[in-house]
Amino acid sequence: MKTYMFPGQGSQSKGMGASLFDKFADLTEKADQILGYSIKALCLCDERNELNNTQFTQPALYVVNALSYFDKLQNDHTEPDYAIGHSLGEFNALLAAGCYDFDTGLQLVKKRGELMSQAPQGAMAAILNASKSEIESILEFHGLNNVDLANYNTPSQIVISGAQAEIIQAQQHFEDAGAIYYPLNTSGAFHSRFMQPASELFFDYLQGFTFSQPRFPVISNVTARPYESEDIVKNLCEQLKSCVYWSDGIEYLLNLNRDNGIPMDFEEIGHGEVLTKLLRTIKNKVPITEKSTSTESDPNKSNAATNTLIIDWNNQHPIGTKVNSIHAQFQQLETRSPAKALSENNAVVYMKGYYGYFSLDELIFE
């Protein structure tokens, strides 16, 4: 079985889609008409430094993801058995499943980006090396009641979102607990209760569209289970203010693999390898079935997986390798150490100019 994964915000970079715009000239022209600007110029040149602004990022990623998918279909001529997308990428998963056409999806994403860019001031931060329950306990213990879990990316990479003052205050508490804390460069508290007004406006906007039953299952960020056709409007609106349960969705697909006895292959469709790296971490860290033993409760298994990751990294990437972080504020990095195990489930590497370490699962190549 095959699952296609579509990346979301944070995977963008200048130059993405370079081989696709001319190949799909008709769709590129349609995109320009809907957006009112050249999508090709935005992605390849970004002369006005807009690519990292939410209202431009989301249409750009949607178009590149969509063209990448159409290119894949031309080469393979077969649809996947399942699709899943991370936040914005979920719109591409629904497109691939035939819930709407390219033009409709781009209109939805354009409106979504505009609404999110107008969201009330807030902040977000990524936390590494702390579990979901640990994060919730720290927030509760310190009275940070205006902070929500926004992205459950892996069991040890979780994003929080909420009131700016409390996100800033939270940093010291998490670092005191031994977690790695990365403030994210976002303009709002996305995927939190603070997106309620945007969610309501998006709901009103979606009333003007009709959606079809998915041709194959699409895993929802909100439920971590397949969409039903009647849930499309509800889930797309809920997604704006709800946690993205990415890790749970991937675990659901992995469990299908075990239950059916048929190998599940995952392929990232779009720009970059953010989701591919998250997938590798999830496979190493989450319990796959109720009968299996989790890597966290089996030190020998987790050590073996981490050691294999470290050996593969060091064989392929010598000191001085140029990488980027999946987090926008840490870019153009250069390694200053080989990879090593910080703990039984965490492989890390150190960077020139930075005191702290970076987990291998948060790095992508330039």
Rank of each mutant, 00 (worst) to 15 (best):
M1N: 10
K2E: 10
P7H: 07
D22I: 11
L27M: 11
K30R: 13
A31G: 07
A31L: 12
I34R: 02
K40R: 14
L42N: 04
C43Y: 01
E47I: 14
L61T: 11
V64N: 00
A66E: 00
L67Y: 00
Y69D: 00
Q74C: 00
D81I: 03
D81W: 00
A83M: 02
H86W: 10
L95N: 04
A96Y: 04
A96Q: 10
G98I: 06
F102S: 00
T104E: 09
K110A: 05
Q121M: 12
S137Q: 13
S137V: 07
G143N: 12
A150E: 09
Y152K: 04
P155I: 02
S156V: 11
Q157W: 01
I167G: 03
I168Y: 13
Q172R: 14
Q172L: 10
A177D: 08
I180M: 12
I180F: 12
Y182K: 07
G188L: 05
F190N: 01
S192P: 03
R193S: 14
F194T: 08
L201R: 14
F209I: 11
Q213T: 15
V222C: 00
R225D: 06
Y227C: 02
S229V: 14
D231W: 01
I232T: 11
V233E: 09
N235C: 03
S242R: 05
D259P: 00
G261Q: 10
I262V: 15
D265F: 13
I269S: 01
H271W: 03
I282L: 00
I282C: 01
I282V: 13
N284E: 15
N284W: 09
V286E: 12
V286Q: 06
T289D: 11
E290H: 05
K291V: 14
N314Q: 12
N314H: 06
N315H: 09
Q316P: 01
H327G: 07
Q331F: 10
K340M: 06
L342Y: 11
S343H: 11
N345S: 14
N346H: 10
G356N: 13
D361A: 08
E362W: 08
